[in-house]
Every structure is written in C-alpha cells, then in structure tokens.
C-alpha cells in the first residue's frame, strides 16, 4: 500500500491517511486480509506523529475496514473492498479538484465536461481504454 500525503491539502492528516487506504481498496492494491503497515512503520515513512496514524487506523477499524489481530498487526477486514460508495466519493473529490482548476482558468462546467470526454475519446482511439470505467451502474 502506498500512502501519499499532500502538504497543500488542508484536510487533517488522519483523514488523508484514511482516504489513501480507501483508495488502495478501490484500485485493488489493498485486498481483504492483507496486512497494513504498522503504526510505527507508516509514521516513520510519512514522518507524522504516530498518534495521527493510530487515529486513522482506529477510525477505519470502527468503520469495519480494518481489524486488529492480537500480536500480529492490523489487517484489511474480509468484507472491506472498494465499494460503489467509496468509488463515488473518490470521483467527487477528483471532480472538485477539476472544477476548482477549471474556474481558476475561467472555464465553465459544460466546457470542462465536454473537453474531458473529447480527450478521453482521443486517448481511447490511440491506446484503447485502460482504466476501468466508473459508470458500470450509473443509475442508483
């Protein structure tokens, strides 16, 4: 599992860590029963107060995403996988960033959406679709 913290992101660090774990579940780099790094390891890697990592793990445990096996460490719960809700939450975050950037450049929503489709179509004809589509069950 790769966890990246964005220094310009004003969200609390423990939330960023939680989101990174969820993202790893959605994209499949983290799966049920996988071990996650120890608090100590992740704190040293990210250079954060270990209490921040503990807080993120504790919240994820409460949500049923992670569980602690006594003396063995922390693992991904068997029921946990990147579900539709988490996928949508990630999509919303991406959309917000894109919108912010678009507004800064004086672009409207329609212009942005249209251009995204165009660029995606261009890329597909060039290389074929490589990223799993998000719109498998669009209507829910």
């Amino acid at each position: 599992m790769l966890v990246n913290l964005d220094p310009t992101d004003a969200r609390p660090l423990y939330l960023q860590i939680m989101d990174e774990v969820r993202r790893a579940l959605v994209v499949g780099t983290l799966r049920a029963e996988d071990p996650v790094p120890s608090v100590r390891e992740l704190a040293a890697e990210l250079v954060v107060n270990p209490r921040t990592v503990s807080q993120a793990y504790r919240e994820l445990e409460r949500e049923g995403v992670l569980y602690v096996r006594r003396g063995q460490g922390t693992f991904v719960a068997s029921g946990a996988r990147g579900d539709r809700g988490e996928q949508l939450a990630l999509a919303r975050a991406v959309a917000k960033r894109a919108l912010l950037d678009a507004r800064r450049n004086g672009l409207g929503v329609d212009e942005l959406v249209m251009t995204i489709r165009e660029v995606a179509a261009d890329e597909d004809t060039a290389t074929g679709p490589s990223v799993p589509a998000l719109n498998q069950s669009e209507n829910e």
């Binding site: 100590r40 704190a43 040293a44 990210l46 250079v47 270990p50 209490r51």
Partner: peptide, 14 residues
C-alpha cells in the same frame, strides 16, 4: 534531516 525525522517518528511510536 529526513532520517532524523523518521527516527523521531519511530521514537514517538516506541
């Protein structure tokens, strides 16, 4: 510097 900060994080965990 990076090593020192990582050491500090480990220290706090221990």
């Amino acid at each position: 510097r990076k090593r020192v900060l990582a050491l500090l994080a480990e220290h706090l965990a221990d």
